[in-house]
Design a protein around this nucleic acid. Structure first.
Lengths: 224, 224
DNA sequence: AAAAATATTTAGCCTTATCTAAAAATAAAT
DNA sequence: ATTTATTTTTAGATAAGGCTAAATATTTTT
């Protein structure tokens, strides 16, 4: 049984290792957890003691098999609760993170198993991120950043790269959410902003920054 | 913002004061919280410091206005989560307490407000206990212990006095849950056990102990 | 390869929440 | 009204988790 603090560290290490599969540095963890390097060092010793991480002084850490299993399960819990908060309670996608952050620490395997069934065993959360199943397997879905697509291509919004509240709120305001079909009309060479047409025919212009944070699944042009 | 420990103490004090409206003793709290009197004294000082209780050395404590408000809200959260766990996730009524004990500590007014709506603003939890509304008002429902009813009287099960898992499981096994109609046929003078007829016609015998822990709403004999 | 900069760890202290053992206050019993 | 028993508080420790400041490693720069 882990404390909330220990669970949060595991999740932070997992999150950092996801991008950069090298071993995770003390400072990176401190930044992610918004705490000091000294506190991190203390906790790393405790986690290593419990065999949840492989820790070598001054060399950073990696999750062990069991540490990875626990972290994956935390991600699973977090994302299932996010689905619950949006689908059942009607929260907006920029409001669910902090609540899920608390709910993920509730202990009880039966709870998550039943929640999963209640929600229809979703494979992706409200931000388009995959939800690992009870055995820790991740769903895969081909997707590309809008910034990597070419004019003429079409797709459907499937996720976001950045999860900041500001970005999610912006997308909500301009009517871009998961499932919205989008056609890339044109990319301006000057600032790499793009003009797109949404499913309802509306045309809008998105900055390069936005296009670098929006995932679409490419739609093959129907050929009939 | 209160710690989980502080919240648990408030709830314990509230629970004890409910029965016995005198001021609550250190020892009673220690018993309820399964901890030592010394630990309780420490915590009482902290709670008094925050004006959540009125504390006089050696004289026990009482909740203040704000302490009572917080405790009531905790009870509200606990019971709403119990409804969620039974009605939505399908847990049995003897399984929900421990999970609700964790869920009640999740912070976020919007969460509880939305959960309440999602559940249909229930007035009673799965054990028949009233759920205070957002303003702290309690629903009232006239009910009597089976042990206080007379042969010939009828009613519907509306709640339990004791909440132990053993008792709840027993009731579940013999098919007695909230909403079951019951007619009191006979009380044995020897051991005060009772013979009852359930809604489906089944007759069963219940010990005095059971009859002292079962609440019914008296059914007025329909007169038409 | 030495110096400078950065990253990490150690040391020492703080807070919360808990405990045991001892002291003090209150209540009960003679 | 004392003595005895019970309850409550104080004193002193402990463990988790966090912080700052100082010391030590490692990297980067010159």
């Amino acid at each position: 049984m882990l404390s909330h603090a220990e669970e949060n560290y595991l999740k932070a290490i997992f999150k950092i290792a996801e991008k950069d599969d090298k071993s995770v540095s003390t400072n990176a963890i401190a930044a992610e957890m918004q705490t000091t390097a000294a506190s991190v060092t203390d906790m790393l010793k405790r986690l290593a003691e419990k065999s949840l991480i492989a820790y070598e002084k001054y060399r950073g850490v990696q999750l062990t098999e069991s540490g990875n299993r626990l972290a994956t399960n935390l991600v699973r819990k977090h994302r299932l609760w996010e689905v619950f908060l949006m689908d059942k309670l009607g929260f907006a996608w920029d409001e669910v993170h902090d609540l899920a952050e608390q709910l993920e620490h509730v202990q009880g395997d039966a709870l998550i198993q039943r929640l999963d069934v209640f929600l229809g065993k979703p494979k992706f959360d409200p931000h388009g991120d995959p939800i690992p199943d009870a055995e820790g397997r991740w769903a895969f879905r081909p997707q590309a950043l809008l910034s990597d697509m070419q004019p003429g291509e079409s797709g459907v919004i499937t996720g976001v790269q950045e999860h900041s509240s500001a970005f999610l709120q912006y997308l909500g305001q301009v009517g871009l959410t998961l499932g919205v079909p989008l056609e890339l009309l044109e990319r301006m060479p000057y600032d790499l902003s793009v003009r797109v047409r949404a499913g309802d025919g509306r045309e809008l212009t998105l900055s390069e920054k936005v296009s670098k944070n929006l995932f679409l699944s490419r739609k093959t042009i129907s050929e009939d």
